[in-house]
């Protein structure tokens, strides 16, 4: 009964809470809703309502977009594949993302070579990003603290950083390949050199803008330099550091795809290039979706960690 969840009901004498018995007009023979106990919305229902309100609009948008895409690309001579064509032609890529991975006695074995599932390519790319980005985070925060706390170091290094940060990631690749001679370390270096600039510059701003009030507290307490570093400087500049780390992780993910497209072998960038060369445009589209989702997840993970650390100090 639909009225069971409503708190108010229309009665012949006006809107009343449904557990209130309306005075029955004598001359009308209309049936009046029997008094029903009000059922409060449970916490679970309220949570589901809130989720639905957040998820429904993007879901509707997605369906509309897919519909328009399908309508535009469903002509027999369309050059661009429609969503249904993506599903049928790339079925193998979509349903077997872990091709080439075998679980043998609790050990994960990955087949060598390029003919592996898309998640294996993504894992390869993520591994390179993880190494390059971690190195960039450590070095970037250290350099940021240095130029943030020393005016001399700032004057000496900031012009250099400002110039180098505008160099596009791929422009480093020839130098990187020449220096490392191997594809994998060269790519890792590319990630490092891409991610480090926003981390350095944001950390430096965070350290430079520590409020005078906090510095005065440190001076009055006569904190030593290490104490100042750990108790005041780091916690005060954590929000800025994570702004840099967040920009850095996004740029790393941009750079890894470009780097792998150029130098080939393995990784999600290579997968895209390979599918284009094999005229498998539908595979490219599947890869794009994966890249977008992984990039989104990386950004949210760094933002989440930053919020947790800032709250706990």
């Amino acid at each position: 009964m639909a009225s069971a969840v409503l708190k108010l009901v229309e009665t012949p004498v006006g809107t009343l809470p449904e557990n209130v018995v309306a005075p029955q007009p004598l001359r009308l023979a209309l049936p009046v809703a029997a008094p029903v106990a009000v059922v409060p919305r449970s916490a679970l229902q309220l949570w589901l309502d809130a989720r639905a309100a957040a998820i429904l609009p993007p879901l509707i948008m997605l369906v509309v977009l897919l519909g328009v895409w399908q309508a535009l690309c469903s002509a027999p001579d369309a050059r661009f594949p429609s969503p249904i064509k993506v599903w049928t032609e790339s079925h193998d890529v979509i349903v077997h993302p872990l091709k080439g991975v075998s679980f043998d006695a609790g050990k994960i074995k990955v087949a060598d070579g390029a003919d592996v599932g898309i998640l294996v390519h993504i894992a390869t790319s993520l591994e390179r990003v993880a190494i390059g980005y971690s190195l960039a985070a450590v070095a970037g925060i250290a350099l940021g603290v240095l130029i943030g706390s020393s005016l001399f170091a700032f004057r000496a290094l900031d012009p250099l950083f400002q110039v180098l940060r505008t160099v596009p990631p791929l422009a480093w690749l020839p130098l990187s390949l020449a220096a490392f001679q191997q594809a994998n370390p060269a790519t890792v270096f590319l990630i490092f050199i891409t991610a480090i600039w926003p981390i350095i510059l944001n950390t430096a701003v965070g350290v430079q803008t520590i409020p005078a009030a906090y510095r005065n507290v440190a001076k009055v307490l006569a904190l030593s330099r290490p104490q100042y570093f750990f108790k005041i400087m780091l916690p005060a500049s954590v929000p800025y550091m994570f702004t840099g780390l967040r920009i850095g992780v996004g740029m790393s993910w941009l750079a890894i795809v470009a780097a792998e497209m150029v130098q080939g072998g393995t990784g999600i960038g290579f997968f895209i290039w390979d599918s284009y060369n094999s005229s498998l445009l539908t595979d490219t589209i599947v890869a794009l979706v994966y890249i977008g989702l992984v990039g989104f997840a990386l950004d949210r993970i760094v933002a989440f960690v930053g919020r947790r650390i800032a709250r706990e100090g």
Binding site: K219, V220, L221, A222, K231, A236, G313
Partner: peptide, 29 residues
């Protein structure tokens, strides 16, 4: 002629460190 905790200061803007609890702020000193 240099700052030190023998001359404690109560600042106008209180200058508590926002990432520390009340007890931790006092404990820092």
């Amino acid at each position: 002629d240099a700052p030190g905790p023998d001359r404690a200061v109560v600042f106008q803007d209180h200058s508590l460190l926002p990432w520390l609890t009340v007890a931790e702020n006092v404990a820092l000193a």
